[in-house]
Amino acid sequence: MILLPCPNCGPRDEGEFTYGGPQRQLPSLDGQSGTDDWLKALFHPQNPRGPMVELWYHASGCEAWIEVTRDTGTHEIIDVATNRLRDDKQ
């Protein structure tokens, strides 16, 4: 079980989270995006050995979706953010 540093709650056990898969950039809902855009976003995520940004839902905690940059080879947690934090950084 890995330890995820939740920006709201501090370091918490993986068991408190639900995995949300790799972070995906969904096509916009403006009627312009095509089938290929959606298929690419949903079914062809990058699957690198190395740093990957992924989503974790803190179900047994603050209920935030956090964006974790994790090295898939070593489980090293490189960065973590919630959307609100990301906005603040900008």
Binding site: T18, G20, Q23, L26, L55, Y57, A59, E63, A64, W65, E67, T82, N83, R84, D87
Partner: peptide
């Protein structure tokens, strides 16, 4: 609930 919170927090901030 999870589906809706994900869209609210992640996809459509």
């Amino acid at each position: 609930w999870r589906h809706m919170t994900k869209f609210a927090q992640v996809d459509w901030p």
